[in-house]
């Protein structure tokens, strides 16, 4: 039962609950204006700015007919005057039926869910979790492949710090995938995730060059390779062009291949890919609205 449950970490939702959200998201895509939350108030608390995530959530709330309170700039709130997170959450849970929150501290959303008398949806807590991103990624995989089982997924770029790839890896592991990790040495997939996969008997391979595996994969999940992650800038200069996808590289790939990216991109997908029918990242962002509608509607018990 998802009703009244907080969504803090992707691990909070079972396989069946994930599938239920995906099914509902498809429903909302087919019929996006369903004012099921007329008379409900949702708090949108962004303790750090994230325009992209906030717009997606607030679009979902508006399409459901809910009213929104909150802030998108922490400087405008009493938090800067030293109010504790607990006090802010206690106060807001007396006003709203649901809290969506983004916070720079890791674990802040879990803590808020323990203090709130209403459910909390984590819209990102530092580098820790961003479960609605994972669910929209899975909805996108389902839509483009028709199912979630036995998918061959390449993850490219910053696999060390990228929380979206870590959460997606954990959640997809319930559906017997094959992973191919493509990263520079400094940004390789951490050992804890690899041992998680070994325990679950999920197969994976590691590469430095994405051309090695492009012809085999169903999903190409690109991430940003940020300069500031490198301790050695010479190393960055050496590898930066290796992790850029260009249209010509998609020539000998499978017809069902789709390119995903959590956005915003910097230089890792050349604009010449955008017109290729295999480019899916803008549609993926749109899928986020339907996925968030599904999550909100399920938690508030109207679907």
């Amino acid at each position: 039962m998802i009703k009244n449950k907080s969504l803090i970490s992707i691990n909070d939702f079972s396989r069946d609950e994930i599938l239920r959200i995906i099914e509902l998201a498809a429903d909302f895509e087919a019929n996006p204006n369903q004012r099921l939350l007329e008379g409900k108030i949702i708090a949108s608390l962004f303790f750090e700015p994230s325009t992209r995530t906030r717009l997606s959530f607030e679009t979902a709330m508006n399409r459901l007919g809910a009213r929104i309170i909150g802030f998108s700039d922490v400087n405008a709130t009493s938090t800067t005057k030293g109010e504790t997170l607990k006090d802010t959450i206690k106060m807001v849970s007396n006003y709203a039926d649901l809290i969506v929150m983004r916070h720079p501290l890791e674990g802040a959303a879990r803590y808020a869910s323990e203090q709130a008398s209403v459910p909390v949806i984590n819209a990102g807590d530092g580098a820790n979790q961003h479960p609605t991103q994972t669910l929209l990624d899975m909805f996108s995989i389902m839509k483009t492949q028709g199912h979630l089982e036995n998918i061959k997924i390449a993850m490219v770029g910053d696999l060390k710090y990228g929380r979206t790839v870590h959460s997606l890896l954990m959640a997809m592991s319930q559906f017997n995938p094959t992973f191919h990790f493509v990263a520079p040495d400094e940004l390789k997939m951490p050992e804890e995730y690899k041992s998680f996969l070994r325990e679950k008997n999920v197969s994976f391979t590691e590469h430095r060059d994405m051309n090695d595996i492009l012809p085999e994969v169903d999903i190409l999940y690109m991430t940003r390779v940020q300069k500031e992650r490198f301790s050695d800038l010479i190393e960055y200069e050496k590898v930066k062009n290796t992790y850029v996808l260009r249209n010509a590289m998609l020539d000998n790939t499978k017809d069902n291949l789709r390119v995903l990216h959590p956005l915003p991109r910097v230089g890792e997908i050349d604009p010449d890919v955008d017109a290729n029918p295999k480019a899916y990242y803008f549609k993926q962002a749109e899928n986020g609205v339907y996925t968030r509608m599904a999550i909100i509607a399920s938690i508030l018990g109207v679907k």
């Binding site: 607990k86 890791e106 674990g107 879990r110 820790n128 979790q129």
Partner: peptide
């Protein structure tokens, strides 16, 4: 950063490893 009592789950004994209930590290 906030007045929150810490909470961990034991995930390894030798060597000792504790997973934070909040940040999951």
């Amino acid at each position: 950063h906030q007045p929150v009592p810490t909470r961990f789950y034991l995930v390894g004994k030798h060597p000792l490893a504790l997973r934070c209930h909040y940040c999951e590290k």
